[in-house]
Simulated assay, not measured.
Amino acid sequence: MGKFAFLSLALLSVQALVARAEDAAANPDKPVLDDAANAVPQVNVDVSTTFPDSEVFGVKLVNGLPTTAQVKIANNEPDPITVNIIGGSLWTLSEPSQNVHNLTVSRYGVEIDAKSEKTITYNFVTELLPQDLSLNLATMVAKKDGLIFTMPAYNGTVSVVEPEMSIFDPQV
């Protein structure tokens, strides 16, 4: 996908770091990751996304109509986690891949208890030329100790289409 394929994930991470910096200023007692530890923190969370309105032939983004994504997050951690935000972007399929459109980033603040799962609805609207694109969705989750992780939620090809028209449609 090229070197900019995960630019949207990086942008989401920057937003989380800004939010974390605000939290650190408000709560100086929260732990901060020590770079000298050389330990790579991880989180045991499974993320999957479905599109309830999709067709057999794949996901279609209808211009002007909201697209609903159901993001299912399973917390396999011994402590609760918090889902902070969900966002994404649309990319070209050609190499090198180019960012076509950044989607709305939605804040949630939903806590998921240990060893449980929740499904969160993420809606977005497109107004683009009809074409096939790559859709990348990501979610940011925070552990109890304040560490924030960016988790890929969806990475697949979608089709941008115009809404169906009828001669009986009053808008025509």
Rank of each mutant, 00 (worst) to 15 (best):
I112R: 07
G87Y: 07
F124M: 08
H101M: 13
Q15H: 12
Q42V: 12
A25M: 09
F6D: 14
I112T: 02
Y108E: 08
F149W: 03
A37W: 04
P78T: 08
P96G: 09
A16I: 09
K3E: 09
D53T: 05
S106F: 00
V125H: 07
I167L: 11
D34G: 02
T119Q: 07
V56M: 09
A24M: 14
E77P: 03
M140I: 15
L129M: 12
D46R: 15
K144L: 15
V172R: 15
A5T: 07
P163V: 03
I167Q: 07
P163Y: 04
Q70P: 00
L135K: 01
K3Y: 06
V59H: 00
I167Y: 12
V172I: 12
A153V: 04
N155S: 11
T150K: 03
P52G: 03
A25R: 07
G2A: 06
S48K: 14
L61R: 00
K3F: 08
K60R: 10
V141M: 03
D53F: 01
N38T: 08
P130L: 08
A138M: 05
V83A: 06
K115Y: 13
N102W: 04
K118I: 00
N155D: 12
T150W: 00
E117P: 00
D53R: 05
T82K: 12
A74Y: 04
D46N: 13
T49N: 06
G64P: 05
P170F: 05
T121G: 00
P31D: 07
P170Y: 02
G87F: 03
V125F: 05
Q15P: 01
L11I: 13
N27V: 05
G156K: 01
L11F: 12
A16K: 06
A39E: 13
K143N: 11
G64W: 02
Q70L: 10
M140D: 11
Y108R: 09
T119M: 02
N155M: 07
T121I: 07
T157F: 01
F4R: 10
D29G: 10
N76W: 07
F4L: 13
W91C: 02
M1W: 07
T157G: 02
L137E: 11
A26Y: 01
I86T: 11
T67H: 04
S166N: 06
T68P: 00
A10T: 15
A5Y: 10
G64L: 05
A142S: 14
Q171S: 13
T104H: 10
